[in-house]
Design a protein around this nucleic acid. Structure first.
Length: 420
RNA sequence: GAGCCCAUAGCUCAGUUGGUUAGAGCGCCAGGUUGUGGCCCUGGAGGCCGUGGGUUCAAACCCCAUUGGGCUCCCCA
């Protein structure tokens, strides 16, 4: 790392050649999967009104209370989106996607921003892909979305992942559960960690998620949400589990799984990998039947997921999974002299029309240096153009892998490239 | 927001108890082949030793601060 005057901002990274090929490949896998599932891409702005995120994600969440990048200009408060679901829900309402008929199946890929302390698998600008199935409360939708998420991982070759499943209930179930939790924790309140004490009133469910040592003794016997689900939620959860089992998707029930965003209702799930260290949550999601209404739309049940792409790549790395293709070059035009360069400049479009990638030397290096450059770029064919070739109108067509070459008219070179 | 570790060439790293012009491997450039890559040989470029201050006759090395990075906690993707 040189000490250049300007550097990437804290927690932000450049994706350089060599790395960008992997991203392109990963994105193509996601898009291909989306096509198979018939989900359409939606691209929303990276900035949203602060109020949308605050209301949608929840004022009390860590994301909203301390991790947002925002600024104001005039009367408007802008925030760099910290997640993708609230913006998609906003677009759904704003453009009346519900009027397009049937449930909407949407997916997105893009950068998200959270002002956290960076570490392995955690950046301030990171990338997520996700999908949302909006306009149905059917458990079928929950399973389809889970299956989409897992299909991407499967295609990539990540087998060693676990699906954690829970139901966080609806407001009615949660109110009952909250009361039960507070009743349970109240006698121990003074012995709980500071964080947990602050969560006691507003959001006691998050106490269950605590990693604080002093809380652990009280967590084991705490009441479970699944015991407080009302009939409707209980039935929904049962159906989701039943469908998953029928579809051969294994899962681990975790009654303590609580997601960090407030909008989730009923189904909550998370994908974890044992191969990526402490940042082991590769993706997660759930049902959010109240979000659309919360931000001003008509009541719209929906379910979705989001996956962290950096973590996905880390998991691949840890498992030795090679992703992405190489950036090999098909044809390199090696030129000697300005006359040859002009010829090459004119020849390249014809070569590219054969479907082969093609470039030339732009700086007038020696033939030796040009071939070295071609070699470095894993070039398949070099076409050497010099005085002799121009005079004869036969060009040296060199197979870089075989180390063989022959003198051919340009037309012949083109027809060979067309079938190469 | 809290803790621990780190910072020398493009990359990975040496650098003795503080002591002249700061090194290696890889990579890059050039030559060995006046027009032919990979292997080999030779040479070259490239460092304000992250930044600022301090201690000292003398600092890459010791001290302080600062910035950046890594890892962990919290939380999350």
């Amino acid at each position: 790392m040189s000490s250049s005057k300007f550097q990437t901002l804290h927690g932000m990274v450049d994706i350089l050649p060599g790395e960008s090929e992997k991203w392109n490949w990963l994105e193509s896998v996601i898009r291909e999967t989306a096509r198979e599932f018939h989900f359409s891409e939606i691209r929303t702005p990276v900035m949203e009104p602060t109020e949308l995120i605050a209301r949608g994600v929840g004022q009390l969440t860590d994301i909203v209370s301390k991790e947002m990048f925002g600024f104001s200009r005039g009367e408007t408060n802008y925030v760099l989106r910290p997640e993708g679901t609230a913006p998609v829900a906003r677009a759904y309402v704003q453009h009346r996607l519900d009027q397009r008929g049937g449930a909407q199946k949407l997916f997105y890929i893009g950068p998200m921003f959270r002002a956290e302390r960076p570490q392995k698998g955690r950046q301030r600008q990171f990338h997520q892909f996700g999908a949302e199935l909006m306009g149905t409360d059917s458990p079928l939708a929950d399973v389809e979305v889970i299956r989409f998420m897992m299909r991407v991982y499967e295609k990539i070759g990540l087998a060693n992942i676990t699906l954690m499943l829970n139901s966080v209930g609806d407001p009615e179930s949660r109110a009952a559960y909250k009361t039960a939790l507070q009743a349970y924790f109240r006698p121990h309140l003074s012995k709980l960690s500071e964080v947990s004490q602050t969560r006691f009133e507003q959001n006691p469910m998050r106490i269950l998620d605590s990693k604080e040592a002093e809380d652990q003794p009280y967590l084991a016997d705490a009441p479970l949400i699944t015991d407080y689900l009302n009939g409707h939620c209980r039935e929904h959860f049962a159906q989701v589990k039943n469908l998953l089992t029928n579809e051969g998707i294994s899962f681990t029930e975790n009654p303590r799984l609580v997601r960090g965003l407030d909008y989730y209702t009923k189904t909550a799930f998370e994908l974890v990998s044992p191969d990526v260290g402490s940042q082991d949550a590769l993706g997660g999601g759930g049902r959010y039947d109240l979000l659309v209404e919360e931000i001003g739309g008509a009541p719209t049940p929906a379910v979705g997921f989001a996956c962290g792409m950096e973590r996905l790549m880390l998991a691949c790395e840890a498992l030795g999974i090679q992703i992405g293709g190489d950036a090999a070059l098909d044809v390199y035009l090696v030129c000697r002299g300005t006359e040859a360069q002009r010829w090459a400049m004119h020849a390249m479009p014809a070569i590219r029309k054969t479907g082969q990638s093609c470039t030339m030397d732009f700086s007038g290096k020696s033939i030796k240096a040009q071939l070295k450059d071609a070699n470095r770029q894993q070039t398949r064919f070099a076409v050497i153009v010099g005085e002799q070739e121009l005079a004869d109108q036969k060009f040296t067509f060199r197979d870089m892998h075989q180390s063989t070459e022959e003198a051919l008219p340009f037309e012949e070179i083109l027809s060979r490239l067309a079938t190469a």
